[in-house]
């Protein structure tokens, strides 16, 4: 069991490492949009720093988590720092942070785990000056995987918190 956990963690670390050097890790925007995320239409010009496309692709709209963890990795903090700056420069946007889990867990636990992950990202953004009223969290548990294989390569992409922007202020 202990050996297995170590193997999983190593794989996860490799997957994360690979991600950080993969400029196209969030895709080219031609994939199928997941539930609750923006359709490809209306994302704007990815070269425009105020566009949703820029936020998704250049800032990075998601952070990834280690198996069964909601602790932010150093890489995740870098991404969230960028998100906080972007939100500071674009005050007309609010965001819903989606928390997700991989399929290797029971349904209810994964909902709770997704809530933890979304909240970890939210708390970090608030600590970097984003007004709490601009952020809301939702958990999808294991209901909306991004990648569909049953391997760590996919699981590592599915254990995520995604910051989904909405134009217009809300309470």
């Amino acid at each position: 069991m202990a050996y297995l956990n170590k193997a999983l963690l190593l794989t996860a670390a490799i997957a994360l490492g690979a991600c950080s050097t993969d400029a196209d890790r969030f895709g080219d925007g031609s994939g199928t949009p997941a539930a609750g995320q923006f359709d490809n239409g209306g994302l704007g010009d990815p070269n425009d720093p105020t566009s949703l496309a820029y936020f998704q692709q250049t800032v990075g709209d998601r952070v990834l988590f280690v198996v069964d963890q909601s602790t932010l990795t150093p890489q995740a903090m870098v991404t969230l720092d960028e998100q906080a700056s972007w939100l500071a420069n674009n005050p007309e946007f609010t965001a819903i942070i989606e928390g997700h889990a991989d399929e290797r867990g029971t349904r209810e636990y994964n909902l709770a785990l997704g809530a933890r992950r979304a909240s970890a990202a939210q708390d970090y953004l608030v600590s970097r000056g984003v007004a709490p009223g601009r952020l809301r969290t939702v958990t999808y548990g294991k209901e909306r995987p991004l990648e569909i294989c049953s391997d760590e390569a996919c699981y590592s992409q599915n254990r995520r918190a995604v910051t989904v922007l909405t134009a217009g202020l809300t309470g």
Binding site: S70, L111, A115, R116, D123
Partner: peptide, 9 residues
């Protein structure tokens, strides 16, 4: 039931 608020369930 379960209620999640502030990341705690």
């Amino acid at each position: 039931f379960s209620l999640a608020q502030g990341g705690n369930t």
